[in-house]
């Protein structure tokens, strides 16, 4: 695994302990405009995400958000926590559909902390749920953090 010396981070290895809770991120309600924006930004133009007629036709109960948008929310939480460059691995499983007006809350905890090859790593689990507690994505990440007194 490659790690990066002297990269910008908002957190040092010494600052993180197993069991730490990552500050949660509560997003604004999902809007149709946001899904149109996300389609253009990402290049994923599947009409399930933008055309209500298609959503009705396939029985998803109207248009549904891109799973990748919800993963993007979780990514925002991780970016806020460590900065983008410390991330080494980030993966999720998509577990449920997200609809318009859903309010997504992202949460995470640190599950492991270890050193290898002179580098400090943290590992955590992350999740995104809607306002009813229904899980939309769940996953894990690994980040390499610099030492405070390197």
């Amino acid at each position: 695994m490659t790690t990066h010396a002297n990269i910008p981070t908002s957190r040092y290895f010494e600052d993180v302990q197993v069991g730490d809770v990552i500050p949660q991120l509560v997003k604004s309600p999902i809007t149709h405009q946001q899904l149109v924006r996300y389609s253009g930004a990402s290049g994923d133009f599947n009409p399930l995400h933008t055309d209500p007629r298609v959503g009705e036709a396939v029985g998803t109960g109207g248009i549904i958000a891109h799973g990748m948008l919800i993963m993007g929310f979780v990514g925002q939480m991780l970016s806020d926590y460590t900065g983008p460059l410390p991330l080494q691995k980030f993966g999720v499983r998509f577990k449920g559909m997200t609809h318009l007006e859903d309010v997504i809350t992202c949460t995470g905890t640190i599950t492991d902390k270890y050193e290898a090859d002179g580098k400090g790593y943290i590992k955590g689990k992350v999740q995104a749920k809607d306002q009813t507690g229904d899980v939309k994505v769940a996953g894990t990440f690994v980040a390499a953090l610099p030492y405070r007194n390197a």
């Binding site: 930004a41 990402s42 290049g43 990748m68 993007g72 970016s79 900065g83 983008p84 991330l87 980030f90």
Partner: peptide, 23 residues
């Protein structure tokens, strides 16, 4: 100002590379 050589990528930017890079 935050120490990056240029604008960095958000963690899920790879989806843009996959879709727009390979239409």
């Amino acid at each position: 100002a935050a120490g990056y050589a240029d604008v960095p990528l958000p963690p899920t930017f790879p989806t843009v590379l996959n879709f727009w890079g390979n239409t």
